[in-house]
């Protein structure tokens, strides 16, 4: 039984301009405990929609087909469950401004583990110390914390629910780089220690390389490549992945000239025919313009490209 198994997931949103497809036939799985899977893509690639669907938090104008199984249980279409915890970018919006950190954290233990108040507060202190916050923070209100501290509180709250899956959607995008490093390392280490599988959603492929075990590259609502991070870095298969890696400035070496992917990502109400990447693809040939490639396995890796069929 896999911790997470998503198969043939299709998610559409109803908008003023009609139905648009945010996710198109996405299948992926997390096989081991404590495995971290990164979803990497640009805005509009569908990575956040996938996260929302897995967390059971799709908005009311969304329609979903397919299946999301957490430890073998179907969760798609079911209401939000505490078995899947989500951490979002905006920590201030996720915390209750009129309750102290201690109260919010303790409440989780009171509800889920039926602890009494004193024990719950005690346990809250232990959980806070795991994310590097001292007991003083129990009596503080969310606005008294810095962005990185709030995000660490959210991590401890996610872990406190003892979830079967954690979704972290751009958890550090609003933070400064030095703080980001700290939060991500805390998150990664605790998730590994607790053995909870996690989906890590980010636009920053360099961060994904260090936080995740395997990486899913998404483009225009589809998975274009899925494999271990070493494979993605050392031998990327899909032309989009190759181009993406070459188009990012490097901090540890001088780049003579950045590679440029021409054009813009397609908008979800007007995807190109055939392969969705073909108008920007340097390797496109006739078949790419007419027929959409399917996800195929290449040496245990998944790629959606006609070059590998």
């Amino acid at each position: 039984m896999k911790p997470l198994e998503i198969s043939n997931l299709v998610i559409k949103y109803k908008t003023l301009r009609g139905w648009i497809t945010a996710l198109d036939n996405v299948s992926l799985s997390i096989d081991g405990k404590g495995e971290i899977l990164a979803l990497v893509g640009e805005s509009g690639s569908g990575k956040s929609t996938l996260g929302l669907a897995a967390a059971g938090l799709l908005p009311s104008n969304a329609r979903a087909e397919g299946s999301i199984k957490v430890n073998g249980r179907e969760t798609l279409g079911k209401p939000y469950s505490s078995k899947v915890a989500a951490i979002f970018q905006d920590a201030l919006a996720s915390l209750n401004p009129v309750l102290t950190i201690g109260e919010q954290l303790a409440e989780i233990f009171i509800i889920h583990e039926k602890l009494d108040r004193v024990r719950a507060i005690e346990k809250a202190g232990v959980f806070l110390s795991e994310v590097g916050l001292s007991k003083e923070f129990l009596d503080k209100y969310p606005h008294e914390l810095s962005g990185g501290q709030r995000q660490r509180v959210l991590i401890s709250m996610a872990l406190a629910m003892d979830p079967e899956l954690i979704i972290a959607d751009e958890p550090t995008t609003a933070l400064d780089v030095t703080v980001q490093a700290k939060v991500l390392l805390v998150l990664k280490n605790l998730v590994k220690k607790a053995g909870i599988p996690m989906i890590y959603i980010t636009h920053d492929i360099a961060l994904a390389m260090h936080v995740a075990d395997s990486i899913t590259i998404m483009y225009a609502g589809q998975i274009v490549e899925l494999s271990s991070k070493y494979d993605v870095f050392e031998n990327p298969l899909h032309p989009y992945t190759k181009a993406l890696l070459k188009s990012i400035p490097k901090v540890d070496s001088d780049v003579e000239e950045l590679y440029v992917i021409e054009g813009d990502p397609p908008s979800p109400d007007n995807f190109p025919k055939g392969c969705r990447f073909h108008p920007r693809c340097p390797a496109a040939f006739d078949k790419c313009r007419s027929k959409m490639p399917e996800v195929t396995g290449v040496n245990g890796r998944l790629v959606r490209c006609h070059l590998y069929e």
Binding site: T178, K182, L207
Partner: peptide, 16 residues
């Protein structure tokens, strides 16, 4: 040090 090296095999040891 806060920037992760692009290569996943390189160690990332940020000063916190």
């Amino acid at each position: 040090s806060a920037y992760p090296p692009p290569n996943p095999r390189s160690q990332w040891n940020p000063i916190i």
